[in-house]
């Protein structure tokens, strides 16, 4: 007879633990044919990209068709600038609207995973919650470079005056784009640009809050305009709870200020460009930054956002410059 004490495990419990695990299942594969197809449907290869062992994938918020050329441009200006700059640096053209999924079926099941491409992603794909990101795959190794790393890489290629021009575009002109997104765009357009969603159902509208909350923290907007960034949080609460705490500052005035600063900067950039093609003979980093922003302001600007009309009507050099850069990549 065994002596029972608090140290011995009761027989029924011991029996259970001796029996389990009944069977060990093999691990669930992280990708299935369905998920591969889904990823391929969101991936568009750069035109002219050659299959190689090193592949770069640019992750962007959303894509839209450029005029009716069948070519796809990133909807967000910073992603677009990066896309254009990628094309310039690697000698490729922007992708067509035929995704890798369609390529695969058309060419009798041959997958083309080794081509550099643009992929539509959610901001959750990045550790910093901001796009664009650059995913580099080399011999099975995968490196994800976040937006801040991309920015540092871009900055390292700039020298002298270009540093200052790039800074002016990146802060002052970019802030006007943020004003357009936060204060003028409809939820439908916000969803198209930042969530790649075309149906603005009640359910998909919820994600607008999420993507905008991460957007105000991108590229230092919340540091330059803490009042406006905090206001967005306040407005989210207002929509959810229905109560408004009055802002301590004059919102309209601050919004008008940001737009005015951008207008002044754009006027000077327009004057500087004048008859010149661009900042360099072939489109460089500063050209891509400016073109990305000017293109987006014109493409997505609303009727009541005055800056869009001003750019179209009064800054012909900027419009011509923008077309020059984009056409060089299409």
């Amino acid at each position: 007879m065994t002596e029972s004490s608090w140290k011995t495990v009761p027989a029924p419990i011991k029996a259970i633990f001796d029996t389990f695990p009944l069977r060990t299942f093999s691990e669930v594969p992280s990708s299935t044919p369905a998920s591969d197809r889904h990823i391929a449907a969101r991936t568009h290869a750069f035109v002219g990209a050659k299959p190689s062992s090193t592949r770069a994938v640019l992750g962007v918020y959303g894509l839209h068709e450029y005029k009716t050329t069948g070519r796809l441009l990133a909807s967000d200006p910073l992603c677009l600038s990066q896309q254009l700059s990628f094309c310039q640096r690697n000698g490729v053209k922007v992708p067509t609207n035929i995704s890798l999924a369609k390529c695969t079926t058309q060419s009798s099941g041959i997958a083309t995973p080794s081509l550099s491409s643009v992929m539509v992603l959610s901001h959750h794909a990045s550790a910093e919650s901001e796009l664009p990101i650059l995913i580099e795959e080399k011999q099975g190794r995968r490196v994800v470079r976040g937006f801040k790393t991309i920015q540092a890489f871009n900055a390292s290629h700039l020298k002298g005056q270009d540093v200052m021009f790039a800074q002016l575009i990146d802060s002052t002109v970019y802030d006007a784009w943020m004003i357009l997104v936060l204060f003028y765009l409809s939820d439908e357009t916000r969803l198209r640009v930042y969530n790649d969603v075309t149906d603005a159902s009640w359910f998909s509208r919820i994600s607008v809050f999420n993507s905008m909350a991460s957007l105000v923290k991108r590229n230092g907007f919340h540091l330059r305009h803490p009042n406006l960034a905090a206001l967005w949080d306040e407005r989210v609460r207002q929509r959810l709870v229905g109560r408004v705490t009055p802002a301590r500052f004059d919102v309209q005035m601050e919004v008008a200020q940001v737009v005015e600063h951008a207008d002044r900067a754009l006027a000077k950039l327009n004057e500087y460009l004048g008859d010149k093609k661009g900042f360099a003979e072939t489109p460089g980093m500063v050209d891509c930054k400016l073109a990305g922003l000017v293109y987006s302001l014109i493409r997505w600007g609303t009727d009541d956002f005055t800056l869009t009309e001003t750019v179209k009507a009064t800054y012909p050099a900027l419009v011509a410059h923008c077309e020059w850069v984009v056409e060089a990549c299409v």
Partner: peptide, 18 residues
Amino acid sequence: TGEATLLNDGVIAYIRDK
């Protein structure tokens, strides 16, 4: 005027942002 005014604005943006 011209390039100098743009550069001046660029440096101000650089100082305020960096």
